[in-house]
Simulated assay, not measured.
Amino acid sequence: DEVNGTTVYAEDSRDNDGYFAQYLGEVGRHDWQLSLRREDNEQFGQHDTGNIGYGYALTDWLRGTISYGTAFKAPTFNELYFPDYGNPELDAETSESLEVGLAGQHGWGHWAVNAYRTVVDDLIAYDASISAPANVQEARIRGVELVLGSQLLGWDWNANYSLLEPENRSAGANRGNELARRAKQLFNLDLDRRLGAFSVGASLHAEGQRYDDLANTRELSGYATLDLRGEYRITPEWRLQARVANLLDADYETAEGYNQPGQAAYLTVRYQAL
């Protein structure tokens, strides 16, 4: 890993060696996934992580899943050393996650319900009291995700809604508070339709309110954005694509003092060999 530019960092490079193996299997109505990873980070040492997942087709249209996994995340150079912001005392994050799900595939469409629980040790989060990133000794994130999709009047639509409980579980004054800069509710809706050589679509994205600080004293309002897109297939290889992001020019922040992009338009010519 390297970082370079006009800013001088106390450390600007580190070696990171990773080894990864994965096994996928399927027999009848059963399927599974096993994975292991060994990461040797020059700065934060050696860490072994992995994942085990199992799925079972209860019927031809209904499938259940369960998985467990661990993870490791090293702080970035900005989080460690950026002048007047970085915290060189940061430790790496480690976490454990458990997820269960149920999904259905029908003639009218598809749906899924997933529930998960993640426990993170030394979560890296912004601490307004020191104006720098800090480690949250223990954090717990519980959530439920609902997925639904179908077709109506020639339009394909897909929606998902997530309800989260991001909680600080560390000892001290902030125990029980919401984790900083994490919304408790998220919603996405995609609409798409193809009309011969043309295709059009729209995406709605919404997030609920969040707090900017670990003490939960500075609240950031929720927001919603709407994107439009279109495509014309000139030939099988050539496509002309257009997109308008944040069509309604919503003014919002996910971190206090940092406005997110306003309305923007993009035009793309794409070539893909067949």
Rank of each mutant, 00 (worst) to 15 (best):
E2D: 07
G5I: 06
G5M: 08
A10M: 08
F20P: 04
Q22E: 14
Q22R: 12
Y23N: 06
Y23W: 13
E26Q: 15
R29F: 06
W32E: 02
Q33W: 07
L34A: 06
N41F: 02
Q43T: 14
G45N: 06
Q46G: 09
D48F: 14
T49S: 13
N51W: 09
A57P: 10
L58H: 05
L58D: 08
R63W: 03
T65Y: 05
T65V: 05
F77Y: 04
N78F: 00
L80E: 04
D84V: 13
Y85F: 05
G86D: 07
N87A: 12
E89L: 15
L90D: 08
D91T: 15
A92H: 11
S95L: 03
S95H: 02
G107V: 03
W108A: 14
W108F: 08
G109A: 11
A115Y: 14
V119N: 05
D122F: 09
I124V: 14
A128I: 02
P133I: 03
N135H: 13
E145Q: 13
L153T: 12
D156F: 11
N160R: 05
E165V: 03
E167S: 10
N168E: 07
R169H: 01
A171W: 14
A171H: 15
G176T: 04
K184L: 04
Q185R: 13
N188M: 10
D190I: 09
D192K: 15
D192E: 14
R194Q: 15
L195V: 10
A197H: 09
S199L: 11
S203V: 12
L204P: 02
A206P: 00
Q209V: 01
A215G: 15
E219T: 06
D227M: 03
R233H: 12
L240R: 05
D251C: 04
E253H: 04
E256D: 11
Y258K: 00
N259P: 10
A264F: 02
A264L: 07
